[in-house]
């Protein structure tokens, strides 16, 4: 075990982790942040996506010990059920989720997109989602949700 000190959702955390432990296991098993999901453990589905110093990474492949001193942001740090971010609110209101298992990863990736590109077009959104699989929605309503924010129109809601 080694000691890891890093910031998670704005709070300093000190945890003991195994050598070779993934960031995903550290977040889920040690910090009980279960929003990031283990969908494939091979970096394909994107359900485990979190932000490391603002950059989306597949937490299932990212070593926990590589996080010393960094700032990690998970879906729990983006909003809550009672105080969702604008993006989370738009996804619910555009029916941009169904089973919801991929949704945390998609929220994280699109939060990063909107921070980098405040007014993305549909093509930007689709490219940003290239690392996130959603089997339920066919993506269109997720894209609609982001576009409603990008236009600033909030879709009349």
């Amino acid at each position: 075990m080694q000691q890891l000190t890093f910031e998670v959702n704005g709070r300093r955390e000190v945890v003991a982790v195994d050598v070779g432990e993934t960031l995903l296991d550290c977040l889920r098993e040690r910090l009980h942040l279960t929003g990031a999901k283990d969908g494939c453990r091979e970096g394909e589905c994107g359900a485990c996506t979190v932000l490391v110093d603002g950059q989306p990474v597949d937490a299932c492949l990212y070593p926990a010990l590589a996080c010393e001193g960094v700032s990690v942001r998970t879906v729990e740090g983006i909003g809550t059920p009672s105080e969702p971010s604008d993006l989370q609110k738009a996804i619910v209101e555009h029916a941009g989720l169904q089973c919801g298992f991929c949704t945390p990863g998609i929220v994280v990736v699109l939060t990063a997109l909107l921070e980098a590109v405040p007014n993305p077009g549909r093509a930007n959104i689709q490219t940003a989602l290239a690392g996130n699989l959603c089997r339920c929605t066919g993506y269109a309503q997720i894209e609609d949700a982001v576009l409603s924010l990008a236009s600033g129109a909030k879709d009349g809601l």
Binding site: K37, P81, P84, V92, G100
Partner: peptide
């Protein structure tokens, strides 16, 4: 009516409990 789904707020915030989270 296009009402938001009842479980949507928990799902979008990563709070829904799937079997792997239980």
């Amino acid at each position: 009516s296009d009402l938001p789904r009842a479980d949507g707020w928990d799902k979008v915030a990563g709070k829904s409990q799937y079997t792997v989270d239980y």
